[in-house]
């Protein structure tokens, strides 16, 4: 009986998938005529809020909206914006050369705070579910892996640190940097035979990094009146020491993600608390 039920179920699933497929394709290929729709060929960025993130003129846009009310939505490109030059513009609104980082940390920093909590809570859940997980011993790592692990570990960590320290200048940032360091920890687990989990140490680093992130936000609240404001000057765009607290936050995020993911992998590998 079981596979006929499986067949019937597969048919219904296929039916639903086809219906949803028609739904989505119909929605995608709607003609541009009646009503706003997903503009596929060349999406006109000036119709989107991100034009102000790119031109870094959000404050001007706020004043324009305050004066012109609903007409703002039709002519967004009339908002005054200063031209931005790598290495030259001083004290720009968000100051980080990498636009994506300026959105992730500066304009929409609250999402990233939420995001870090998601990772924090899921690794916590992982730890809760696997804390009596006994260590399953793998085949002995080959010579190359053992020596390679010891040799490569510092360089991978260095590369990870580089990625999240330069988060606001070059692509990559807190998350990929942290993951790279975590993969370095993974390499150690694979390489060393007698690898002992250092969970308490990672737990302390993790909570301190989280504390700095939330602390910076609260400092912003108490000094400038709203959470996560950039209270440090944003310096000249393009230099390492620029874009105020964005760099600091991204470093804190990088360390936190690194500590969390490595403790996650250690717990997943088993062997419990050390």
């Amino acid at each position: 009986m079981k596979n006929t039920q499986g067949m019937v179920n597969a048919f219904f699933a296929f039916l639903l998938v086809v219906i949803l497929g028609i739904f989505f394709f119909n929605a995608i290929n709607q003609p541009l005529g009646n009503g706003l729709v997903l503009n596929k060929d060349n999406p006109d960025l000036s119709k989107r809020v991100s034009i102000h993130y790119i031109l870094k003129n959000v404050h001007n846009a706020e004043d324009y909206l305050a004066q012109h009310k609903s007409s703002y939505f039709r002519n967004r490109d009339k908002v005054k914006s200063s031209n931005l030059e790598f290495g030259k513009t001083k004290n720009a609104e968000s100051g980080s050369a990498n636009e994506v980082t300026s959105i992730v940390v500066n304009y929409r920093g609250f999402d990233t705070l939420g995001e870090v909590t998601v990772l924090f809570i899921s690794i916590l859940g992982l730890g809760m579910l696997l804390h009596e997980n006994k260590k399953k011993y793998w085949a002995k790592p080959s010579l190359i892996v053992r020596t390679g692990a010891n040799f490569l570990f510092p360089f991978i960590v260095l590369f990870g640190v580089y990625v999240f320290v330069h988060g606001h200048l070059t692509p990559g940032g807190g998350f990929p940097g942290g993951t790279i360091i975590a993969s370095a920890a993974l390499l150690l687990i694979l390489g060393l035979k007698d690898f002992k989990n250092k969970l308490t140490m990672t737990k302390i680093i993790e909570s301190l990094a989280g504390l700095t992130f939330a602390g910076l936000g609260l400092v912003g609240l108490f000094t400038n009146g709203s959470f996560l404001t950039n209270f440090l000057p944003s310096g000249t765009m393009g230099l390492l020491v620029s874009s105020g607290i964005t760099a600091l936050i991204y470093i804190a995020v990088g360390i936190k993600v690194a500590a969390e993911l490595s403790s996650g992998i250690m717990e997943m590998n088993g062997g419990g608390e050390e």
Binding site: H52, V58, A61, E62, Y107, G109, S226, F227
Partner: peptide
């Protein structure tokens, strides 16, 4: 949040 008024900030 972040001193950016609504349609632009959260």
């Amino acid at each position: 949040i972040g001193n950016w008024k609504p349609p632009f900030g959260i």
